[in-house]
Design a protein around this nucleic acid. Sequence first.
DNA 1: AATACGGGGTG
DNA 2: CACCCAGTATT
Length: 312
Amino acid sequence: MRTEELRDAVLTWFGHHARDLAWRRPGTSAWGVLVSEVMAQQTPVARVEPAWREWMERWPTPADLAAAEDADVLRAWGRLGYPRRALRLRACAAAVVERHGGVVPVDEADLLALPGVGAYTAAAVRAFAHGRHAVVLDTNVRRVLARILAGLALPGPAPTREEVRAAHALVPADDAGSARWNVAVMELGALVCTARAPRCEACPVASACRWYAAGRPANAAPRRPQAWTGSDRQARGRLMAVLRELPDDARLGRADLLAVLPGTDVDQPARALASLVADGLVAEHAGVDGTGADADGTEYALPSRRRQEVAP
DNA sequence: AATACGGGGTG
DNA sequence: CACCCAGTATT
């Protein structure tokens, strides 16, 4: 199957099966697209949609988000995961306002310079928000190309030069064609060429797929195990969940906050809390006595941008 | 090149 | 219950 035929098959399939995602609706701003991409970084699209709707209703423009409180931003982020993305998104909004007059830039280098925007998101914004040429290489596209071109069940841990080159070769040179191809091949990976149970019987390019032709062999190297229970990340997440539920302007004493963590590792709670403070995800307030010598008097809350933080 | 970084849906 | 999800920033 020639490149042209492969593209047409995927584009035709997309025409019939594209999801009606909220940020694909006509009239969605470039900023709205950028927000959707950041939210979807390592978070499944299905969980992003409701959060995106509420978020965009509350903060429709970069200027709106830039003026928001970090605490409100983190609460609205909710359980999407990796809450540092929420802070980066607000910083991104501020950068768009300050550097680009509130307009989401089109230039790749300008996009890459924004907080929380990496190679994937920059390409996605160029393609999906601006309809410009870009090489979108997310986990979906990487998997589709790994199977069709390399005959592998799953792509490696990070994109290789060769992968980028191959992806680039498939993207039409013109803006409009590029934009359509990127979204179509990504959608194919999300709906048909899935990681777990690929639906090859419904795939428009199965006849051109090296992996399918080889009988869908399993990958040689399994991925490294990822422990969750008892991890620092779980501990951080639990602390953030507690602080998100705190009433406005309320604070929680250090002992009360750390007590919510199970005590398998004796110094994990303190370590997790310190890392959250270091990341700017939690604000640390000196105790009422103000001496600062007594760590147990220290109180914690989600960070406020306007209120001056006082180091204990 | 390796790691850290959430949380939940699913096979 | 392991695995994976429209990745990014840091070391």
